[in-house]
Amino acid sequence: MKKPVLSLSYAIVAVILLMAILSPLIASADPNFVDPFNRNLAPLASVNTAFLEDKSARLAVFGTDGLGRDILSRMVYGARTSILIGCSVTVVAVLLGTLIGLICGSFRSADGVIMRVMDGLMAIPAILLAIAFMTAIGSGVWTVILAITVVEVPRVVRLVRSVVLSVRQEPYIEAAVSLGVPTGRLLARHILPNAVGPLTVLATFILSAAILLEATLSFLGLGMPQDVPTWGNTIAEGRTLFQIHPHNIWIPAAFLSLTVLSVNVIGDGLRDKLDPKNASRAR
């Protein structure tokens, strides 16, 4: 990957992270404040303040939606939701997947059963699996996180398991075993470090996949509750007025696509760095 593109991606992700952490400071308005006198303002149109408490002249930078809610604020808080869900899923999926992967790699008896379950989970297309879980448990932040985590865990399990299986044959593991290193320590100190590199790369791809999946679920109306400002919800609500006020879709779409794209580029960059011989190969 070319250097400037990679730097730009890091910059974009940094901006999104800042937006997520500092949402209340950056957002100029309450993302859920309904303002009937300022509905469907185009980007950069000035706000009609005649009926508002704050009379200072100002622009709606990204315009307003069909209920007069400020889109910039919705994007800023949407970043918070996306990052929260993306990071939670990534952390939980990596931790849980690593644990299960280590168990599979170490204990033959558990391996067969667990891997069949993982094969089953991987055989169901991601969105169907997530929808099945959402339907079963009902929508909400934690359900979304749980549903996407279930989708992503098998990938981590496969990776960690394959690392354990391939490393187990190495002479230094044999040496450690014959020196009497206990299994837990053997796994943590001698085997797991081999998985850190590939896990980091996988984690970035899980992050982008989770952000994308959350937005898709929310877009379909099956994800986050409607009163939570998210990129996906904003796009879903912009659908009805798409032909007249397309900015309701373009702006959240741009945030979503740029974020996912940047995280993917960073993942590609990390992989090339860790494994240069793969640099020009397909994923």
């Binding site: 798409f242 779409a253 696509s257």
Partner: peptide, 23 residues
């Protein structure tokens, strides 16, 4: 094409196509 395909959600591509070809 590969980068766009992996990063831009299908529904965004869909609206882009509607915007261009239909509207």
């Amino acid at each position: 094409v590969a980068v766009v395909g992996f990063s831009v959600p299908v529904f965004v591509v869909g609206y882009a196509l509607i915007g261009l070809f239909s509207i």
